[in-house]
Simulated scan of single mutants.
Amino acid sequence: MMFNKDDFIQDCIKAVAEGQEAVRELVAEAVSDSSRVISELGEPEHAGIAPLYRSPELTIINFTWAPCMSLMPHNHQMFAVIGIYSGREDNIFWRRTDASIEAFGAKSLGAHEVVTLDHSMIHSVLNPIGKMTSAIHVYGGDFFAPDIPRSGWDHETLAEQPWDIEQVKTLFREADERFSLYAKSQR
């Protein structure tokens, strides 16, 4: 069975009404064969956030992480299903304390693996390898304009701050530029 972006979107629209587990099954099937996803979405060449679908109930994003890129702890305020179709993604899971947050677990995902996060989960993400990592992320709401404001935490101080999607887009752009400069210097 070939991965088809439009069919996947329509299936996710139907599945979101059934809940996170139904979405997880679709994402797991989609990333079970990386070549199918890459054939439809293209070979990852640049780090970035590429929305495939967005509505108040559902957002589907093709994320591509630059090599050795990290993203600060953050929450989503909605469920998330993350399926890796190339590369590796390391997640650290955090929980709130009286003063800040503390790490309490981790999960490393490789190609064909899926993780589900509930609406209250806080996580940070690292691409620990020297090549691009690509994943399909499906959210149970509008990732870019959630009903409940999101938070991010400073990498160093772990101080909570309002989530700023433009700052995150800048982080992806800067990581992509660093990787491009590095790749050129290696030729």
Score class of each variant (00 low, 15 high):
residue 4 N to T: 10
residue 33 D to F: 01
residue 98 D to I: 02
residue 54 R to I: 02
residue 20 Q to H: 11
residue 13 I to N: 06
residue 145 A to V: 07
residue 33 D to V: 07
residue 149 P to M: 13
residue 2 M to A: 01
residue 19 G to M: 10
residue 76 H to D: 05
residue 113 E to I: 09
residue 139 Y to N: 04
residue 92 I to P: 00
residue 127 N to G: 11
residue 15 A to K: 06
residue 131 K to C: 11
residue 187 R to K: 08
residue 34 S to D: 03
residue 124 S to I: 15
residue 102 E to M: 12
residue 174 E to S: 03
residue 59 T to K: 08
residue 112 H to G: 01
residue 132 M to N: 09
residue 32 S to E: 11
residue 133 T to G: 07
residue 181 L to H: 03
residue 31 V to A: 07
residue 37 V to L: 04
residue 117 L to Q: 09
residue 2 M to W: 05
residue 39 S to D: 13
residue 120 S to Q: 15
residue 186 Q to W: 00
residue 37 V to Y: 02
residue 39 S to F: 07
residue 33 D to R: 14
residue 71 L to M: 14
residue 117 L to M: 08
residue 12 C to N: 03
residue 141 G to A: 13
residue 42 G to A: 11
residue 20 Q to G: 08
residue 29 E to V: 08
residue 116 T to L: 02
residue 42 G to P: 06
residue 55 S to Q: 04
residue 43 E to T: 15
residue 23 V to M: 01
residue 155 H to V: 02
residue 173 R to Q: 11
residue 8 F to K: 05
residue 184 K to E: 03
residue 16 V to E: 06
residue 90 D to I: 15
residue 97 T to A: 09
residue 157 T to S: 15
residue 121 M to S: 13
residue 70 S to G: 13
residue 77 Q to A: 12
residue 114 V to S: 04
residue 113 E to Q: 13
residue 112 H to C: 04
residue 163 W to S: 15
residue 182 Y to Q: 08
residue 3 F to M: 07
residue 102 E to G: 03
residue 63 F to Y: 01
residue 55 S to G: 07
residue 143 F to R: 04
residue 25 E to N: 04
residue 61 I to F: 05
residue 49 I to Y: 11
residue 88 R to E: 08
residue 45 E to L: 05
residue 147 D to W: 04
residue 85 Y to A: 14
residue 111 A to L: 02
residue 166 E to A: 15
residue 179 F to I: 02
residue 21 E to D: 02
residue 183 A to L: 05
residue 59 T to R: 10
residue 30 A to W: 02
residue 177 E to K: 00
residue 7 D to Q: 14
residue 12 C to V: 00
residue 17 A to H: 14
residue 13 I to Q: 06
residue 114 V to A: 07
